[in-house]
Computed example of a mutant assay.
Amino acid sequence: MIRLRGRRMPRRVTQLLIGLFLYGIGIAFIVRGAIGAAPWDVLTQGIARQVPLSFGTITILVSIVVLLLWIPIRQRPGTGTVLNALLVGPSADVGFSVIPQTDVLWIRVVFFVIGLLVLSAATGLYIGAAFGPGPRDGLMTGLHRRTGWPIWVVRTGLEVTVVAAGWALGGNVGVGTVAFALLVGPLCQFFMRLFAIRLPEPTDWVGPPHTGEIRLAG
């Protein structure tokens, strides 16, 4: 039996894992830029100032809490969702171990730009692999589905809430936070189109029933 979906599986898995690793590296570049972190990373920074845990460990714990919030909205995680929760934090810690801190403003701006581009490309990679959304994206889409509120309302509400909480705890809010909010959407959309892997629809499967062979139409 020949299934195109099966032949694409190695590429999907590879793309997922590379995407999740690069996502953490992108976070590390943005945080090292120190001109303002992404909303959820502001929260992580704030918590890190209060407890003796690494940024990556806190990222994992926050992801687990977010996944628990999926339960009342009946959102179902995918393989990519679970791996996102477990792998992004450690990869961010790897990034922090190799990306230096600096007080030179132009280098910090370059770090931020690199981080934004890497994170956006990583988002396109892991979402394009079609193994399920990350914990935070799934919370957003789940709330949209359950409440009927527009995506932008749900996303804005979530991010304003986590930024406020993170800032109150000591997280870094700045011009980078605003730039991230304005630019990450269009950049992610570009990379999602670039890296999307088309999976066959159920109606695309055809084949002679008596042979058991399944082929993709066209």
Rank of each mutant, 00 (worst) to 15 (best):
L67C: 12
F55G: 06
M9G: 10
V178M: 05
H144A: 13
I214N: 07
S91P: 03
T57E: 13
I60P: 05
L116Q: 05
C188K: 01
V94M: 14
W149N: 00
L43I: 04
I58Y: 00
V65W: 03
L43P: 00
R145A: 08
P200K: 04
R76V: 12
A181C: 14
P133F: 13
T161A: 14
P72I: 04
A122V: 12
Q15D: 12
Q15S: 14
R136E: 11
A217S: 10
L116R: 06
G157P: 11
Y23T: 15
I214G: 00
V31K: 08
R198I: 09
H144D: 07
P200A: 08
V206H: 11
G166P: 00
F21M: 04
G157M: 02
W152C: 10
I214F: 12
C188N: 12
R198V: 15
V118T: 14
V162Q: 06
I60N: 09
R74G: 00
R11I: 12
R11W: 13
Q45V: 10
A28V: 12
A122E: 08
P133Y: 13
Q50Y: 02
M140G: 01
G24T: 02
L143C: 06
F180E: 11
M140T: 03
A38G: 09
L187I: 05
V178S: 07
G36A: 11
V104N: 14
S120T: 07
V65E: 06
V163D: 02
V153E: 01
G128E: 14
A165V: 15
P209T: 04
A37K: 02
G171L: 02
A38S: 09
G36C: 10
V163A: 00
L169I: 13
I2A: 13
G174Y: 02
A28N: 09
G142A: 02
P77R: 11
I114W: 01
G24H: 05
V51E: 10
A165H: 01
L43F: 11
R198G: 07
G142N: 06
I64S: 09
L183K: 08
C188F: 04
I25K: 07
Q101D: 12
V153M: 07
V163M: 05
D93K: 03
R146E: 15
I99K: 04
D93N: 08
T79A: 13
I25M: 14
T59R: 06
A37V: 10
G33V: 01
A38T: 01
G170E: 12
H210T: 14
V62M: 10
T156F: 03
L86P: 07
G95C: 06
I58A: 08
A37F: 10
M9S: 11
V184Q: 08
T161Y: 00
N172V: 07
G19S: 05
S63I: 02
V65M: 13
V184C: 03
V42K: 04
S120G: 07
L216W: 11
Y23R: 07
W70V: 01
R155L: 08
P150A: 03
I58K: 00
A38K: 00
D137E: 15
T211Q: 13
G56M: 03
Q75T: 04
L139R: 03
G138L: 03
A130R: 15
V62F: 02
I2P: 01
I114H: 03
W152K: 15
G6R: 14
G218A: 12
L16A: 06
G171E: 05
A217W: 00
G166M: 05
T123R: 08
L61I: 15
T14M: 15
